[in-house]
Simulated scan of single mutants.
Amino acid sequence: MNNQTTAAADIDIIDYAPQYQPDFRRLNEEWITRYFELEPADHITLGDPQTHILDPGGFILLARAQGSIVGTGALLYNPDGNWKLAKMAVTDQMQGRGIGYTLCKAILDRARTMGVKRVELVSNRTLLPALHVYGKLGFREIPLGTVMYKRGDIKMAVDL
Protein backbone atom coordinates (compact mmCIF):
# COMPACT_ATOMS: atom_id res chain seq x y z
CA MET A 1 0.00 0.00 0.00
CA ASN A 2 1.42 3.38 -0.93
CA ASN A 3 0.75 5.34 2.23
CA GLN A 4 1.87 8.60 0.65
CA THR A 5 -0.96 8.73 -1.86
CA THR A 6 -3.80 6.91 -0.12
CA ALA A 7 -6.47 9.40 0.92
CA ALA A 8 -10.08 9.17 2.05
CA ALA A 9 -11.14 9.11 -1.62
CA ASP A 10 -9.29 5.79 -2.02
CA ILE A 11 -11.07 4.20 0.94
CA ASP A 12 -13.97 1.76 0.80
CA ILE A 13 -16.31 1.72 3.77
CA ILE A 14 -17.54 -1.83 4.29
CA ASP A 15 -19.70 -3.67 6.79
CA TYR A 16 -18.15 -5.79 9.50
CA ALA A 17 -18.15 -9.55 9.06
CA PRO A 18 -16.73 -12.15 11.48
CA GLN A 19 -13.51 -12.55 9.47
CA TYR A 20 -12.67 -8.91 10.33
CA GLN A 21 -12.74 -9.45 14.09
CA PRO A 22 -8.90 -9.67 14.28
CA ASP A 23 -8.65 -6.33 12.41
CA PHE A 24 -11.27 -4.75 14.68
CA ARG A 25 -9.31 -5.91 17.74
CA ARG A 26 -5.89 -4.94 16.30
CA LEU A 27 -6.90 -1.40 15.34
CA ASN A 28 -8.48 -0.67 18.70
CA GLU A 29 -5.72 -2.25 20.76
CA GLU A 30 -3.18 -0.25 18.72
CA TRP A 31 -4.56 3.16 19.64
CA ILE A 32 -5.68 2.32 23.18
CA THR A 33 -2.29 0.92 24.20
CA ARG A 34 -0.46 3.83 22.61
CA TYR A 35 -2.21 6.40 24.84
CA PHE A 36 -3.82 4.45 27.68
CA GLU A 37 -4.21 0.87 28.85
CA LEU A 38 -6.69 -1.80 27.89
CA GLU A 39 -9.48 -2.08 30.43
CA PRO A 40 -11.74 -5.06 31.20
CA ALA A 41 -14.58 -3.61 29.10
CA ASP A 42 -12.20 -3.34 26.11
CA HIS A 43 -11.32 -7.02 26.32
CA ILE A 44 -15.00 -7.98 26.49
CA THR A 45 -16.13 -5.87 23.52
CA LEU A 46 -13.10 -6.49 21.32
CA GLY A 47 -13.19 -10.22 22.04
CA ASP A 48 -16.84 -10.66 21.10
CA PRO A 49 -18.25 -7.78 19.04
CA GLN A 50 -21.10 -10.02 17.84
CA THR A 51 -22.55 -10.33 21.36
CA HIS A 52 -21.70 -6.85 22.62
CA ILE A 53 -22.24 -4.63 19.56
CA LEU A 54 -24.14 -6.43 16.80
CA ASP A 55 -26.69 -8.55 18.69
CA PRO A 56 -28.12 -5.58 20.66
CA GLY A 57 -28.77 -3.78 17.34
CA GLY A 58 -25.54 -1.92 16.67
CA PHE A 59 -23.15 -2.17 13.76
CA ILE A 60 -19.48 -1.89 12.87
CA LEU A 61 -18.05 -0.29 9.76
CA LEU A 62 -14.52 -0.75 8.44
CA ALA A 63 -12.31 1.39 6.22
CA ARG A 64 -10.43 -0.62 3.59
CA ALA A 65 -7.51 0.67 1.50
CA GLN A 66 -6.03 -1.54 -1.21
CA GLY A 67 -7.27 -4.69 0.49
CA SER A 68 -6.12 -3.78 4.01
CA ILE A 69 -8.41 -2.81 6.88
CA VAL A 70 -7.07 0.56 8.08
CA GLY A 71 -9.91 1.88 10.22
CA THR A 72 -13.01 0.93 12.15
CA GLY A 73 -15.86 2.38 14.14
CA ALA A 74 -19.04 1.14 15.77
CA LEU A 75 -22.47 2.30 16.80
CA LEU A 76 -23.66 0.59 19.97
CA TYR A 77 -27.08 0.52 21.55
CA ASN A 78 -26.82 1.00 25.30
CA PRO A 79 -29.30 -0.51 27.75
CA ASP A 80 -30.05 3.07 28.90
CA GLY A 81 -31.63 3.71 25.49
CA ASN A 82 -28.81 5.82 24.09
CA TRP A 83 -26.78 5.15 20.94
CA LYS A 84 -23.04 5.46 21.33
CA LEU A 85 -20.27 5.97 18.80
CA ALA A 86 -17.39 3.77 19.94
CA LYS A 87 -14.30 1.83 18.96
CA MET A 88 -13.21 4.44 16.41
CA ALA A 89 -9.69 3.73 15.24
CA VAL A 90 -7.48 4.46 12.23
CA THR A 91 -4.11 2.75 12.00
CA ASP A 92 -1.17 5.05 12.79
CA GLN A 93 0.36 5.19 9.33
CA MET A 94 -2.97 6.18 7.73
CA GLN A 95 -3.94 8.97 10.12
CA GLY A 96 -4.29 12.52 8.86
CA ARG A 97 -5.89 11.53 5.55
CA GLY A 98 -9.55 12.10 6.38
CA ILE A 99 -10.27 8.42 6.97
CA GLY A 100 -11.60 8.90 10.49
CA TYR A 101 -13.91 11.66 9.29
CA THR A 102 -15.17 9.53 6.37
CA LEU A 103 -15.75 6.55 8.65
CA CYS A 104 -17.50 8.57 11.35
CA LYS A 105 -19.70 10.32 8.78
CA ALA A 106 -20.69 6.95 7.31
CA ILE A 107 -21.64 5.71 10.80
CA LEU A 108 -23.79 8.80 11.43
CA ASP A 109 -25.40 8.49 7.99
CA ARG A 110 -26.31 4.86 8.70
CA ALA A 111 -27.63 5.85 12.14
CA ARG A 112 -29.94 8.42 10.49
CA THR A 113 -31.33 5.77 8.13
CA MET A 114 -32.05 3.60 11.20
CA GLY A 115 -34.05 6.43 12.77
CA VAL A 116 -31.49 7.18 15.49
CA LYS A 117 -32.11 10.69 16.84
CA ARG A 118 -29.00 11.24 18.95
CA VAL A 119 -25.53 9.72 19.17
CA GLU A 120 -23.21 10.14 22.14
CA LEU A 121 -19.54 9.32 22.60
CA VAL A 122 -16.95 9.29 25.35
CA SER A 123 -13.38 10.30 24.55
CA ASN A 124 -10.35 11.88 26.14
CA ARG A 125 -9.34 15.53 25.96
CA THR A 126 -5.79 14.62 24.93
CA LEU A 127 -7.03 13.06 21.66
CA LEU A 128 -7.22 16.40 19.83
CA PRO A 129 -7.41 15.07 16.25
CA ALA A 130 -10.36 12.85 17.18
CA LEU A 131 -12.12 15.68 19.02
CA HIS A 132 -11.61 17.91 15.96
CA VAL A 133 -13.28 15.29 13.72
CA TYR A 134 -16.19 14.95 16.12
CA GLY A 135 -16.61 18.72 16.26
CA LYS A 136 -16.65 18.95 12.44
CA LEU A 137 -19.46 16.40 12.43
CA GLY A 138 -21.57 18.41 14.89
CA PHE A 139 -20.75 16.74 18.21
CA ARG A 140 -20.84 19.10 21.20
CA GLU A 141 -19.70 18.53 24.76
CA ILE A 142 -22.33 17.41 27.26
CA PRO A 143 -22.03 16.60 31.00
CA LEU A 144 -19.76 13.61 31.56
CA GLY A 145 -21.84 11.67 34.06
CA THR A 146 -20.73 8.13 34.86
CA VAL A 147 -18.47 6.53 32.26
CA MET A 148 -17.27 2.96 31.78
CA TYR A 149 -13.62 3.74 30.98
CA LYS A 150 -10.99 5.36 33.19
CA ARG A 151 -9.65 7.15 30.09
CA GLY A 152 -13.02 8.81 29.41
CA ASP A 153 -12.97 12.45 30.47
CA ILE A 154 -15.22 14.11 27.88
CA LYS A 155 -18.67 13.19 26.64
CA MET A 156 -20.12 14.56 23.43
CA ALA A 157 -23.39 14.21 21.56
CA VAL A 158 -24.89 15.07 18.18
CA ASP A 159 -28.57 15.28 17.32
CA LEU A 160 -29.32 13.71 13.97
Rank of each mutant, 00 (worst) to 15 (best):
M1L: 10
M1P: 12
N3Y: 14
T5E: 14
A7N: 15
A9V: 10
A9E: 14
D12F: 06
I13W: 11
I14R: 04
D15V: 08
Y16I: 09
P18K: 04
Q21I: 11
D23M: 07
F24N: 08
E30K: 06
R34T: 14
R34V: 10
F36T: 02
E37Q: 13
L38Y: 00
E39P: 00
P40V: 02
P40S: 03
A41N: 09
A41L: 11
A41S: 09
D42S: 04
H43A: 12
T45Q: 11
L46W: 01
G47V: 04
D48A: 05
Q50F: 01
Q50T: 09
T51N: 13
T51R: 15
H52Q: 10
D55F: 02
D55H: 09
P56E: 06
G57R: 06
F59I: 03
I60D: 11
L62N: 08
A63H: 01
A65Q: 10
Q66W: 01
G67H: 08
I69V: 13
I69Y: 00
V70K: 09
G71S: 08
A74Q: 07
L75H: 13
D80F: 02
D80A: 07
K84M: 13
L85P: 06
A86K: 01
K87N: 13
K87M: 15
M88Y: 03
T91Y: 03
T91A: 12
Q93F: 08
Q95E: 02
G96W: 08
G96L: 03
G96S: 10
R97E: 02
R97D: 02
R97P: 00
R97W: 00
R97A: 01
G98Q: 03
G98D: 05
G100H: 04
T102K: 15
L103Y: 11
K105S: 10
A106M: 12
A106G: 15
A106N: 12
A106T: 11
I107V: 14
R110T: 09
A111Q: 07
A111C: 06
R112A: 14
T113A: 10
M114P: 01
V116H: 02
R118C: 11
V119H: 01
E120M: 12
V122N: 14
S123F: 04
S123M: 00
S123P: 02
N124G: 00
T126L: 15
T126A: 14
L128M: 09
L128A: 14
L128C: 02
L128F: 04
P129G: 05
P129D: 06
P129K: 05
P129T: 01
P129A: 06
A130Y: 05
A130G: 07
H132K: 14
V133S: 08
G135K: 06
G135I: 00
F139H: 06
R140D: 08
E141A: 14
P143S: 07
T146F: 11
V147E: 15
V147A: 14
V147T: 15
Y149D: 10
Y149V: 06
K150I: 12
K150A: 15
K150V: 13
K150F: 13
K150N: 13
D153G: 04
D153E: 01
I154G: 03
K155A: 15
K155Q: 15
K155M: 11
M156N: 08
A157K: 04
A157Q: 04
V158N: 05
D159M: 07
